[in-house]
Design a protein around this nucleic acid. Structure first.
Lengths: 199, 199
DNA sequence: CTTGAAAGTTCTCCAAACGTTCGCTATTCT
DNA sequence: AGAATAGCGAACGTTTGGAGAACTTTCAAG
């Protein structure tokens, strides 16, 4: 079982890896838990290694890795249940946590900040962040980042016409779809996720 | 495991490829991470190749490619820029990546699945996942998870009346606010984030 | 084909940061 | 009292990586 300080150290390491993608140095761990001595931190880390929570890649800086048991649940949030007006929060069978990495991350994905109201109809507001997966083709009805005449970029729903034309449809009743011949439109990516921060 | 500077270099390369469609030169990488020596940059790139994050197409300029495993363990996404209808994607000064941990994770936070349309007015749709930070008080105007009569849970905007009453306001023009005496309403948490997956 | 600029490669020098180990001390728990 | 947990600071060798010079390769313009 871990001591209080060992727990702090492990939490600091986990947090640092999540934030930066690599392990902290001893000094960084020390700064995070309020210890001014490298030696003391080293002893804590050694204890965590001995107890099987960490692995060390010796002879290299930042060579700490979480073991599998310690790594699970790092990028996760507990998922409590469903909330609907007029009812108590109801548990969701089978799921009790969501993993942000599974949810949003992946190779070839990147984020874009949305400006404008062209997609308010499906809840994408000005200032939201959307996650795009790089692709040069898309299926009908998907929401894509499209480049028009290699100049203008836009986020719209894609619809192919029977005549080979491409319609880019805003989800906003006050705007009208734009229709282009296929050669003027290049698809850059597909919308796969969206997030917003309220603070 | 990557060192801090190797991480910077990899991020700069990934970013450059996403933005320009081709790999950067050593000098460009150096400029991006603040290194004035080609030799030093070369050593960083070589380390990334040795560790399997990059491949070199030797004998050609800009011959760097990302391997598939290039993103692992990190909860960050490259942030390319702003997208607005009718304009090219424009870079955001200062920020080049967003960190999901900063964005969404934190102590006392949990996720809820939203049912119903009571908050469509601010882009929270049926099926979305919202992130709540546990709290028992909230400021006026914040969106809260509130428990009414210790029975019904609901996600609404909070507004306190002059007479001590509490109004829970749905963001939906077809619904009307509910007003309760303060003792019937208990605040459980505050909305801090929201996410949605499109696949 | 020649030429020159830009890009990549390899090298040495050197400073700063890092991990490791040690002795000493203080606190807490049994 | 004894053991376990921790903190501090110093010493030492190792790793990282910035600077710059010298050299080779690539590529496009003349």
């Amino acid at each position: 079982m871990l001591t209080a300080q060992q727990n702090n150290a492990l939490a600091a390491i986990r947090d640092h890896i999540l934030r930066h993608g690599h392990a902290p140095t001893l000094n960084e761990i020390g700064a995070a838990i309020g210890v001014h001595s490298k030696g003391a931190v080293h002893r804590l880390v050694q204890a965590l290694i001995d107890k099987g929570y960490l692995q060390r890649e010796s002879g290299s800086w930042r060579g700490l890795r979480l073991t599998e048991t310690a790594a699970e649940g790092t990028a996760t949030l507990p998922l409590i249940g469903r909330i609907a007006a007029g009812r108590p929060i109801e548990a969701i069978a089978g799921e009790e946590s969501i993993n942000l990495a599974d949810f949003l991350l992946g190779p070839r994905r990147y984020a874009l900040r949305v400006m404008g109201d062209s997609m308010v109809g499906i809840g994408i507001l000005d200032g939201d962040t959307v996650i795009i997966e790089q692709a040069d083709t898309a299926r009908n009805g998907e929401i894509v980042v499209a480049l028009i005449d290699d100049q203008e970029a836009t986020l719209k729903r894609l619809k192919r016409g029977d005549d080979g034309s491409i319609a880019l449809i805003p989800e906003n009743p006050t705007m009208t779809p734009m229709i282009y011949p296929a050669h003027r439109v290049r698809i850059q990516g597909i919308l796969v996720g969206q997030l917003r921060s309220y603070r």
